[in-house]
Simulated scan of single mutants.
Amino acid sequence: MNPLNHVAIIMDGNGRWGIKNRKSRNEGHKEGIKTVELIIKDSIKHKIKYLTLFAFSTENWKRPTKEINYLYKLLERFLVTKIKIFEKNNIRLNFIGDRNFSIKIKNLLKSAEKRTSKNTLIQVNIALNYGAKQEIINSIKKIFKMKKRINEKNIEKFLYTFDVPNPDILIRTGNKKRLSNFLLWQLAYTEIFFEKKLWPDFNSKDFKKILNMYKKIKRNFGGI
């Protein structure tokens, strides 16, 4: 049986769900928060130590300003109203990506990380303003600056996920089959599952089904 330490998820389909069910993309994003909370609970249940969620990419800035502003209001509300729950339930929060945000958002992210830094049950990484290509470029720039040798070990040392094992599983909801510039370095040997359901419709049964499929896969990592 394959060990399972880290699950990464591209939470795609919120906007389409909102248009389909509530006539508003923003309503889909709001509904998607419920699925985030559900999957965190399920990950704890299945004893997964790391969960990485792709919340906002560097390419998402191309979206309408009204939608972007709503997304960040959702983030603020999530951090303010849920932080005590994370503290109480031994959940560590970690944010990866370029923190080019308002001072208010930066302070909320920093506070959430600090208040949960000693928690050990599960680490939830939330990718915000994240792009894998830029992450790799930034890593190489740091290597040059420190006059170190360019090799796999040093590149990994300066990635956002330097202290986290690479994902065992990547799940992408929303019936799209692409990686969308997410964890390109880290996903080299990750098992990938594409799910037709939109993120707000993804549930515990779907999650468990994927975990069970993963356990049956023979993982060779380039060997035989």
Rank of each mutant, 00 (worst) to 15 (best):
Lys216Ala: 09
Phe207Asn: 01
Lys62Ala: 11
Arg172Met: 10
Lys142Pro: 02
Ile83Glu: 04
Ile224His: 14
Pro165Met: 09
Ile136Pro: 07
Glu27Cys: 15
Ile169Leu: 02
Leu159Met: 11
Ile19Arg: 15
Ala127His: 03
Ser111Cys: 14
Phe78Pro: 11
Asp206Gln: 06
Ile68Arg: 03
Arg92Tyr: 11
Ile83Gly: 05
Asn203Pro: 10
Gly13Trp: 07
Ile33Thr: 12
Leu38Gly: 03
Ile143Cys: 07
Tyr50Glu: 04
Phe158Lys: 11
Tyr130Ser: 00
Asp12Cys: 10
His6Pro: 02
Ala127Asn: 01
Arg99Tyr: 08
Asn21His: 01
Gln123Asn: 10
Lys34Ala: 11
Leu179Val: 07
Met146Ala: 10
Asn212Thr: 01
Gly223Asn: 07
Leu211Cys: 02
Lys104Asn: 07
Val7Met: 04
Lys142Trp: 06
Lys88Ile: 14
Thr65Cys: 11
Glu191Leu: 14
Thr81Leu: 09
Asn100Pro: 01
Lys215Phe: 15
Trp185Ser: 14
Ile19Trp: 12
Tyr70Gly: 08
Tyr72Ile: 06
Lys30Pro: 02
Ser139His: 00
Trp199Lys: 08
Lys20Pro: 08
Met146Gln: 14
Glu156Met: 14
Glu195Tyr: 05
Tyr214Gln: 13
Ile48Asn: 01
Asn69Trp: 12
Lys88Arg: 12
Leu71Ser: 03
Asp206Arg: 10
Trp199Ala: 01
Ile40Val: 13
Thr120Trp: 00
Ile171Val: 11
Thr116Ser: 14
Glu37Met: 11
Ser139Asp: 05
Ala55Trp: 13
Pro165Arg: 10
Asn26Val: 09
Lys82Phe: 13
Asn166Leu: 06
Asp98Gly: 07
Phe182Cys: 00
Lys208Gly: 09
Ile136Met: 09
Gly32Val: 05
Lys47Met: 13
Leu79Cys: 02
Leu74Val: 12
Val36Ile: 15
Thr190Asn: 11
Ile96Cys: 06
Ser111Gly: 04
Ile155Glu: 05
Lys197Arg: 00
Ile210Glu: 00
Asn166Tyr: 15
Pro200Asn: 13
Arg172Gly: 06
Lys62Asp: 10
Phe193Asn: 00
Asn154Trp: 09
Met213Ile: 15
Asn220Pro: 03
